[in-house]
C-alpha cells in the first residue's frame, strides 16, 4: 500500500467513526427523555457530522475529486471503516451515553495527539474538533457518573450497558499495517499506544460512577479494516442513504 493509500484509509477511519456515531446520536432527536438532553444530543450529533465533512472531505480530495457527500451516501457497508462500537444500536438512553463516553474518551486522546500531526491539514482538523470533543467528554463522563451513581435502576442499566459495550472497546486500540505506516510518517499515533492513557481515564470515571469494569479483554473486530461489520450498519445505512439510493444525484 502506498503512503497516500494508507493516509486515505486513515482519513476514512476517522471520518466514518464520526459519521456513523453522528447519525446514531441524531436518532435521539425528538426522542430524548428530557428537552435539555434532546438538544444536547443533537448538538453532539451535529458536531460529529461537521467533523465528518472535514475528514471525508479530505479523504475524497485524495481519492480523485470525490466529495464528503459521495463518500457518505454512495458507499456500501463493506467500504466503511468505522469501529464497530459506533454502529451498535442505541439501546436505552444509558447505553447511548455509555457508548458516547467510551468513544469520547478515545476520541479526545486521539485528537490530542493529532494536534501535532506532521500533516498540517490533519492538525488543523484536530484543532477544531478537539475543542468540541473536550466538551462531549465532559458531558458524557458526568452523565455516566450521574446515572451510574444514581438510583438502583439507573445503576443496573449503566452496568448492563458497560458489560454490553466493553467488548467493542478493544478494536479502537488494534494496530495494523496501515497504522504502522501512518505512525512512521508522523501523521497519527499508533492506536495501541493510546491504551494506557485511555484505561486510566476510563477507570477514573467508572470508579466515580460506582461501576465495575469487566475483566475480559476480548474484542469484537472487523469494522476499521472493513472485514466484517455488525448487522446494525446495513440498517443504519438504509436509513441514512435511502434518498440518494432512490433518487440518485438528487440535490436541493
Amino acid at each position: 500500500m502506498t503512503r497516500d493509500e494508507a493516509f486515505q484509509q486513515f482519513l476514512l477511519r476517522m471520518g466514518d467513526n464520526t459519521l456513523i456515531l453522528g447519525h446514531r446520536v441524531s436518532e435521539w432527536c425528538g426522542h430524548a427523555p428530557v428537552l435539555e438532553e434532546d438538544i444536547a444530543l443533537a448538538n453532539t450529533a451535529l458536531d460529529l457530522i461537521g467533523q465528518t465533512q472535514m475528514w471525508l472531505g479530505l479523504a475524497g480530495e485524495m481519492g480523485g475529486g470525490k466529495t464528503a457527500d459521495d463518500l457518505a451516501f454512495l458507499r456500501d457497508v463493506w467500504d466503511f471503516r468505522n469501529v464497530l462500537l459506533v454502529e451498535v444500536a442505541n439501546g436505552d438512553f444509558g447505553r447511548t451515553l455509555m457508548r458516547q463516553f467510551l468513544f469520547d474518551a478515545w476520541h479526545s486522546i486521539m485528537l490530542g495527539r493529532l494536534l501535532t500531526s506532521s500533516d498540517d491539514r490533519v492538525a488543523a482538523i484536530a484543532a477544531k474538533a478537539s475543542k468540541e470533543v473536550a466538551y462531549h467528554l465532559e458531558r458524557s463522563a458526568e452523565t455516566v457518573v450521574g446515572l451510574g451513581d444514581g438510583t438502583e435502576e439507573s445503576h443496573t442499566r449503566m452496568q448492563a450497558a458497560l458489560d454490553y459495550l466493553w467488548p467493542y472497546v478493544g478494536e479502537m486500540f488494534v494496530s495494523d499495517d496501515i497504522d504502522a505506516q501512518i505512525a512512521a510518517a508522523g501523521i497519527a499515533p499508533n492506536p495501541a499506544d493510546l491504551r494506557d492513557e485511555y484505561d486510566a481515564l476510563v477507570k477514573r470515571v467508572l470508579a466515580k460512577a460506582t461501576l465495575t469494569l469487566p475483566e475480559s479483554r476480548f474484542a469484537h473486530k472487523g469494522g476499521r479494516d472493513g472485514r466484517m461489520h455488525t448487522e446494525h450498519l446495513g440498517h443504519l445505512l438504509s436509513q441514512m442513504q435511502w434518498l440518494q439510493r432512490a433518487y440518485p444525484g438528487a440535490s436541493w
Binding site: 428537552l35 435539555e36 444536547a40 448538538n43 458531558r139 458526568e142
Partner: peptide, 20 residues
C-alpha cells in the same frame, strides 16, 4: 429557564440550549 439535576449540569444544559 431549564431543568437540571444540579448546578453543574444546569450550566452544561444552558450552554447547549442557550448558547448554540
Amino acid at each position: 429557564s431549564l431543568h437540571a439535576p444540579d448546578a453543574e449540569m444546569a450550566i452544561k444544559n444552558a450552554r447547549d440550549v442557550y448558547t448554540r
